[in-house]
Structure formats: C-alpha cells, structure tokens
Design a protein around this nucleic acid. Sequence first.
DNA 1: CGACATTCGTTCACCTTTCAACTTCTTAGG
DNA 2: CCTAAGAAGTTGAAAGGTGAACGAATGTCG
Lengths: 158, 158
Amino acid sequence: METDTAPQWLTNEEQCAWRTHVEVNRMLTYQLEKDLQPFNLTMNDYDILVHLSESEEKRMRMSDLAAATLQSKSRLSHQITRMENAGLVRRENCESDRRGLYTVLTDEGMETMQRVAPHHVDSVRRHFVDLISPEALGELHKALTPIAEHLRAQRGKP
Amino acid sequence: METDTAPQWLTNEEQCAWRTHVEVNRMLTYQLEKDLQPFNLTMNDYDILVHLSESEEKRMRMSDLAAATLQSKSRLSHQITRMENAGLVRRENCESDRRGLYTVLTDEGMETMQRVAPHHVDSVRRHFVDLISPEALGELHKALTPIAEHLRAQRGKP
DNA sequence: CGACATTCGTTCACCTTTCAACTTCTTAGG
DNA sequence: CCTAAGAAGTTGAAAGGTGAACGAATGTCG
C-alpha cells in the first residue's frame, strides 16, 4: 500500500526563481550589514532603533519589541544589554505591570539613528529599490503580501 | 557651503514594499529552518548537501564551496567539521594542489539528502511557491535578476 | 480568598559565527 | 633557483545566538 505521494518537485522556472530569491536575500543582508558597519551598528540594532523611534514616547515593552523585530525574548534581552552598554537605549521599569520593562531610546540613540538613517536609506536604494522599476516594485509588494500573511499565521504553530 | 544633499527618503510605497520584502525573508528563513529541524539539518547543512550532490564526483574544493554558499572559509571549515562528525561528508586531500582539500559527500550524506529533499521542497511550496501565481513568480524572478547581478558585482569590494 | 496556570524578562549552559593569527603550499619575479 | 607575495585551510578566543529553566508578578476560576 502506497501512503506517500510522489514529491511535487519544482519546475525549472520555479527553481530558478526560488534560488534567485534566496540568493538576493542573502547577498542583500550581507551588503546592508556591511554598509552599516562603519557606524558600529548591525541591522538588528538599526531595526530596534527604528521601532523605538517610531513608537509613542520612544519606548516599548520588551515583549512587544521582541515580537516586532521577530526575535526571541532571550536574544532581545542580550541585544538590549549590548545596546544599553553602547548608550543607545536604557531599561525602565513599568508602573502598570511590575514584571515588565520598557526599552527607552536615549537622546544618543535618537541622534545616532538620525545620523545613520540617510546612509542606510541610500544603501537600500542603491542595492535594491533603485534597481527595480516602480511598477515591478508594486507587483513584488502585491505578490509578497499574501506570503507575509501566511507566514505571520504560521509563527508559533507546532 | 553645502556638501551633503538632502537624503532621498523612500516613498510610502517603496517603504511598504521594502519592509514587506525584509519581513517575508526573515519569516521565511525562520520557517524553512524550523521545517528542517526534525531532520537535524540546518539550511546551511542542506545547502551544502545540495551543492555537493549537484557537483561532478560529489566533491568540491573548500574555497569553491565557501564561495558557492556565500560564507567565509572559517565558517565553512567549522561547518564541515560538524558535518563530518555527523557522517554526512568527509574531507579528502587534493592531488593537484597540496594546500587544498575536497569536501566529499558520503553515501550517508547522499541518502540523507534524498530523504529530506521532498520535505524541504514541500516546505518551499507551502510557504512560498504555491502562494504566488506562476506569472507573478516569473515577474519576481525577472525583477530580482538584475539585483542579484548587482550584488554579485559588489561582493568583496572595499 | 486561594490555588494554579500564565506571562514577563533574565540567566545559564551550550552551540555557532567572527576575526585575526598561523601553517603549508604555490606562483611570480629577479 | 630563491625569495617574497599570495592563496588554501585551520585554529582558538571572543562575541553572538538558542532553548530550557527560573523567579517574580499577574490573571483566573472555583
């Protein structure tokens, strides 16, 4: 009796597209990371600065920040400790829930962010946005959106 | 005197598309990695197995493998040590260049690869390929190709 | 209320990645 | 040839990431 079905291999086109996608993402990550290095920031650092700077009162709960930046609480905890030592953020107790902590963007963190942002944006343009027509970028966005939704729904499932 | 030009911020559409792209890639990596865990493989392991299995004689030079998988020699060296301990590959001396080494796919490595591949392909389908129309996938491929070329050209520049 | 489950964030032990130093071998130039 | 420059890989220490276990605080339900 046959329980397994034959694997549905990728067609040639699918495989090429998939591999290009993976490759672009690895190289892009590498390049953006490299362009941030002169500022002594990683993309993870930068991402956290962005989230904090866009939030009310320049502060977020650890858990929310972890969820927003798609990392484990443990990793974020280490990460924030490093950023705290670098003077970019500080921890602050939460009045309403005494288990909780806020990560607060310091003035230095804000200045760093504002100083670095133009360079990072430029990097994103040079290596991605400006290499694709606005129409194609729109199509890409439209194609990726359902995937993003699917993946968000998957997170934390068995 | 003004030397800096005003930063060319991303438009709203550009920013949304860019963020979705980044988000998809992080979640996708996470998901694919998770789907490989039951087989005790990481994507890095899998990628190496694929490269080796597709190569002549099931063997590649360390440097070539490092270049193909976009990682440093050091990282690859540690990685191969781990995979060697797991019985998936073995190192073999290179006749023509006595500095060099081959990484050779073992039978066990080949079997592992063949056993895991269908599941991995299925994972790629469920979380990506099948969520996008063939036309959109083609467009995506076409849009990403110049970016891939640009990024390849960038690698290892100052 | 009181017990029990759950959430928040940190910590510990362990694994992976990075970076620079190092060995060995090859190649190019005088 | 012989030396110097460079390439191939490895190594070891330090930094970063992971997952389970933990203490403290909150929620929930009889």
